[in-house]
Design a protein around this nucleic acid. Structure first.
Lengths: 190, 190
DNA sequence: ACAGTTTCTGACCGATCGGTCAGTTAGCGT
DNA sequence: ACGCTAACTGACCGATCGGTCAGAAACTGT
């Protein structure tokens, strides 16, 4: 149960997400961990392996969420439940999501990142099939990219200070609004 | 009016925004431009200088928008006008905005990027002062980061296919909704 | 005290990075 | 045809990159 391996994973995730995978050297990760570069490569065979170890758990979790989403019937209640699940996922895996969203397309041929890209695409297809208009597809993109940005932006310092529940419920409100299958105005007409 | 310098600027912007500044080598930029690395450094003194040339015009434009925003009275009409201006800015400078949003904080001590960070901070302060709740600050972050992501995401291929006006008006609708100074529900109560 | 294993390190490797420089090529006015 | 300048290039530089390896240090059970 050596603390070093887990420390390295955490530090690497933080750096990869904020400074970029290409912009983070193994030397820097080693320094932040108080180790030598060789020690980093002792715990993880390569830089790729370190990235993979850093993001793998979040992939697993996202896959689960998509699974349950696919099996549930498409009702307003299930949609609400999905958004709640997804917000929890976002809050727990902010760094990983930020990494996927902003570097996923340039980090191809890293297996675990490809997997993440697949999952994000499936997520997008799900929303694209439910709502057909271009505007709704834009709403989905803004919700996804916006949340990923927000949770790693400088502002998120204050968010961490705020009660977890408040941030969570606010995020659910905003995302529900953005991902509403039908605009409020049209719904009222019926 | 040599085409090379301008080509390099465009190519560099595209690569810096999508693959990241650290993840883009001068060699790659040279290859994409059909030149040698030395030629790139002939037109631009350094990699930093190339980045600066690539984003400088957008900084200028953003500064202008913030100027007019600061001078205008704070009314619903002026807010609407600002959002329209800002959406036009986003559509015209998608790559630069994406670069600022996602790499701005890790590219400090590049003068022009620092300048961009200042401007973004001022923008955030403006919205923070107008609306005080944490949720509204979150809405601003999602709108900004979401738009930046959307306009450089794979989906944006379809957006380019769609008429400019449609994308523009949809974006104005969504951002107006996100940046509304007062939530609809509260507004209706009064 | 000893041996065995895990953890860690410095020295080293080839490749690539951003950048310099001397010199070649191409375009243009005269 | 000439000379001048702008555009371009290959060779080269020191630094840093990810990665290898032999061995030191630290911890373990006996």
């Amino acid at each position: 149960m050596s603390t070093s391996a887990e420390d390295l994973r955490t530090i690497a995730l933080q750096e990869f997400a904020t400074a970029g995978y290409a912009g983070t050297s193994l030397h820097r990760i080693a320094d932040l961990a108080g180790l030598s570069k060789s020690s980093v490569l002792y715990h993880y065979a390569s830089k790729d392996a370190l990235l993979e170890a850093a993001v793998a758990p979040s992939i697993e979790r996202l896959s689960e969420i998509l699974m349950t989403m696919a099996t549930r019937p498409v009702t307003k209640a299930s949609r609400k439940a999905f958004i709640a699940d997804f917000v929890d996922f976002l809050l727990e895996h902010r760094l990983e999501v930020h990494l996927f969203i902003n570097q996923g397309r340039s980090l191809v041929d890293v297996p675990v990142v490809d997997r993440a890209n697949e999952l994000v695409d499936r997520l997008a297809e799900f929303f694209a099939s439910t709502t057909m208009t271009a505007e709704h597809r834009m709403r989905f993109g803004i919700a996804l990219g916006g949340a990923a940005f927000l949770l790693v932006s400088p502002q998120s310092r204050e968010l961490e200070a705020a009660p977890y529940g408040e941030t969570r419920s606010a995020l659910i409100t905003i995302l529900s609004e953005l991902l509403a299958p039908v605009p409020v105005s049209i719904a009222l007409e019926k």
